[in-house]
Design a protein around this nucleic acid. Structure first.
Length: 224
DNA sequence: GCCCAGGTGGGTA
DNA sequence: TACCCACATGGG
């Protein structure tokens, strides 16, 4: 079985074993998605949601509103998520740039070709490859594959890339292995898999739904 | 009390 | 370019 075939089977098994979280069908604006993604950096889903809700309760999350409130108020809302001083400053700065350079909307960036748009996003404060790719895939519907820490680990254990592969190498590889129409669901499902079964310290290969398709799973089952 | 969750950017060699 | 560390809270 070649790699692409294995990737296809893995995706199919993941679809049978996991349901996409509710927020997937929530319609956030691109700017809200940017804000949530920045908040989520190095932060659990639960605390990310709480922080974003704290913000939304105070005002509609638009660049104009963020520009007009004090950084202390943003800090208060974000405290629960951790790293709140950094993130509050970054959100202020992002609001300022979006209003002043992009007419209050990210849409003009999204209309550019993928790599061009990606470069512009990467130049924004607090926006690294993961955040840029989330925006491009989720909001701009561009064919790019965001790599978070779970996907990084899962890709290596599955043998899709070798252990020292970096962000860009993993992204290119997954984009080759999956069809562009599946990037979104594959991204979500691989994260769910990583969190539930393919944990950093304690992989649960015996219970993992794709252990038969994973070199690491086969190895562990053999040794059991 | 300790370890885990889980990206970016600034600094150093 | 490649690492190392700061950022900070909440839950098990």
């Amino acid at each position: 079985m070649d790699e692409k075939e294995r990737a296809r089977k893995i995706l199919s098994v993941l679809r049978e074993n996991f349901t996409l979280p509710r927020w997937v069908s929530s319609n956030r604006t691109p700017f809200e998605t940017l804000v949530v993604t920045v908040i989520s950096q190095n932060t659990s889903d639960r605390n990310t949601a709480r922080a974003f809700e704290n913000l939304s309760k105070r005002f509609m999350v638009t660049p104009e509103n963020l520009l007009n409130v004090s950084v202390e108020e943003i800090e208060d809302a974000l405290r629960v998520a951790g790293l709140y001083r950094n993130k509050a400053r970054i959100l202020k700065k992002l609001a300022e740039i979006v209003v002043e350079k992009f007419g209050g909307s990210l849409e003009s960036i999204f209309r550019l070709p993928l790599e061009e748009a990606r470069k512009i996003l990467l130049a924004l404060p607090g926006v690294g490859p993961k955040t840029a790719d989330v925006l491009l895939l989720f909001c701009a519907k561009k064919p790019t594959f965001p790599i978070d820490t779970h996907i990084n680990r899962v890709s290596k254990r599955l043998g899709f890339v070798d252990g020292k592969a970096g962000y860009e190498e993993i992204r290119q590889k997954l984009q080759k292995l999956f069809d562009a129409k599946d990037y979104f669901s594959a991204h979500i499902l691989l994260i769910l898999l990583g969190r539930r079964f393919c944990k950093a310290r304690q992989p649960l290969c015996h219970e993992c739904p794709i252990n038969a398709l994973c070199p690491m799973g086969e190895e562990r089952l053999k040794n059991a």
